[in-house]
Amino acid sequence: MIRITEQESKYNDIDKMSVLEILKDINEEDKLVPQAVEKVIPQIEKLATAVADRMAKGGRLFYIGAGTSGRLGVVDASECPPTFGVPFDWVVGIIAGGDIAIRKAVENAEDDVAQAWVDLQEYSINEKDCLIGLAASGTTPYVIGGLNTARKNGILTGCIVCNEGGPIAAESDYPVEVVVGPEFLTGSTRMKSGTAQKLVLNMLSTTVMIKLGRVRGNKMVDMQLTNDKLVDRGTQMVMHELNIDYDKAADLLLRYGSVRKAVEAGQNL
């Protein structure tokens, strides 16, 4: 397959550019990313709908990937519990090479076609669950193997890739192929490709959590109150919902532990 992500940058002699020229040209390329994402919203819609349906029936969401893609999956998964108050095992991000690979590249980890399924077994993944493969290239063996075995076991599969027609998309029930074009720095898929994957992950997990009832109006009513800023934000939400003063709202919030529970309690007073 032709991998657009590996094609030559359209910018030459970038090592001779001024700082301003480099920044402006990177920015010009970055502007293309949301346009590419917009083109595949129908693909994202199908994936998000399918994942929400599975999770509403008790399933979980897993991400697998290597390098930048794997790290992005881990980030998205790790942000779901504090943002939406869901259990830590509802959304799980797995990176080739294990957690050490989040900070340090693990040699050849992405080339093991069997390891992803081994990693997934630690979580007892089953036919109720969803598995999304993340790979800018669309050809990472670790991801291909995980998706292939998952499909054989009745697990819903999807992917977020930045090349069309690759083997990862072929192993996915719901592929999302965001083609952002060659990178400013040839082959550096942590740039536009990584940005595209991050945007799609934001759209996917947020949409799924909204459909699972984890948002009220436009508020994160189940967010974890892990610092003073979030306690203040939650207090403001309770004030707005109940039309009460700050001190009363703070008291309700701290007494019941979440915006949702505080509002429900306040409505019943």
Rank of each mutant, 00 (worst) to 15 (best):
G181P: 06
E107Q: 14
Y63P: 11
I210T: 13
E38C: 00
I160M: 10
E107Y: 14
K198F: 14
V221S: 08
A250N: 13
G158T: 01
V259T: 05
D30M: 09
A56V: 00
K16Y: 07
K152W: 01
M220R: 05
S18L: 14
Q224F: 03
Y246V: 00
E241F: 13
D99I: 10
G85M: 09
Q236G: 01
V161C: 12
Q236N: 10
L61R: 01
I64A: 05
V161G: 02
L72A: 09
T157R: 04
D245Q: 06
G73S: 06
K248T: 11
V221F: 05
G181I: 02
V33F: 00
R60K: 13
A135N: 03
I168E: 10
T206N: 15
C80L: 11
G217T: 06
E21M: 09
V259F: 00
E241C: 05
P34W: 09
R260G: 06
E264N: 11
V51E: 07
A135Q: 10
V259M: 08
E127Q: 14
S124G: 05
D76Q: 12
G65D: 09
L201R: 01
D99A: 12
C159T: 13
K24Y: 12
R3D: 07
E171P: 00
Q224M: 15
R3M: 13
N163S: 08
S205W: 00
E110V: 08
A150S: 10
Q43M: 12
P141Q: 01
A96C: 00
P81C: 06
I244N: 06
M55W: 06
G145F: 04
N148I: 12
G257D: 14
K211S: 10
G194N: 09
I144N: 05
E177L: 11
C130V: 14
G73P: 04
V74N: 10
L269H: 12
R103V: 11
E8Q: 15
G154W: 04
A56T: 05
Q236F: 09
L147E: 13
G194Q: 11
G165Q: 02
N163E: 09
V179F: 00
I144P: 01
I95N: 03
E110T: 07
N153P: 05
R3C: 13
V91G: 00
Y11N: 12
D129N: 10
